[in-house]
Amino acid sequence: MTAYIAKRLIAMVPVLFGLSIIVFMVMALIPGDTATAILGAYATPENVERINRDLGLDKPLVQQYFIWIGNVLHGDFGRSFTLNRPVLAEVMDRFGATLILAGTALVLCSLIGLLAGIVSAVRQFGWADRIITFVVLAGISMPSFWLGLLLILVFAVTWRVLPASGMYAVYGGGDLPDLLYHLILPAATLSVVAAGVIARLTRSAMLEVLRQDFIRTARAKGVSETRVIYAHAFRAAIVSVIPVIGIQAGFVLGGAVYIETVFQWPGIGAMMVKAISTRDILLVQGGVLVVAASYVLFNLMADVVQTMLDPRIRT
């Protein structure tokens, strides 16, 4: 197992390296440049040249890339042009906020998705199944930013029970209850689609398992129905759901980009949107590396958990 994990971690290196080259090239290819982004309407060729010189952007691209990668290997991710701040400090601040949001959403969507899927399967074609299937379909079909605005409108503007945006109270605050209070709406919004996907898969996996012989045997032995469902069927079904949760982790991270913008959550998604529009190439690179690495790690974790749960693929 350790060897397997080590192998997967080593395989991550070329992935991240290749990714950094692609991102660098794409950022260089899209029209517009950093100096214009900084100067706005004041971007005369003369001013652009001066800024490029001050920022070291007048060097050839290949050279810029190697300077950057050399620094990264020494732990220096450079300085953001637009934020006047080291990239690493900004990325770490922001990534923490994203992890809190995405992590909460992932736990939420797994719990809700699994529970809904089980209920749906056990009461197949019953009223609970119908309602759940309908809600799941609606959840998957709704654009999350739209749902987010709707929730803000209902809970923050009309009822005034939850904050419309932000991660902490604007003045004072900053403790855990404050955080949880601000977390409810964005985490709920972010988990809806993934919860739907997980519910659907859990339902079909459970239905599949419930039809199998060992379930009939268990029931024939007189095992209680609760035990049949949770100890026997669910145990078998979850094995095929776990990798989906791993993939959903990636989607939740990706979805965080919209949700962070809608709820002004100070996460890495909103940071990336701004970094790309201002052509802040080092900030984009730093952000992409962290997000990509965590995506690979999530999938690795899902695989490891699956291996532990499923004796058939344990080696």
Binding site: L149, I152, L153, A156, V157, R160, P163, A164, S165, G166, V170, Y171, T261, V262, F263, Q264, A270, K274
Partner: peptide, 22 residues
């Protein structure tokens, strides 16, 4: 006593936050 400047990039959210009293 103090002023807090809050960046809210999405115009809809900004309007909602104003209406919500934030």
């Amino acid at each position: 006593e103090a002023v807090v400047f809050r960046p809210i990039t999405d115009a809809n959210t900004r309007v909602a936050e104003m209406m919500a009293g934030g």
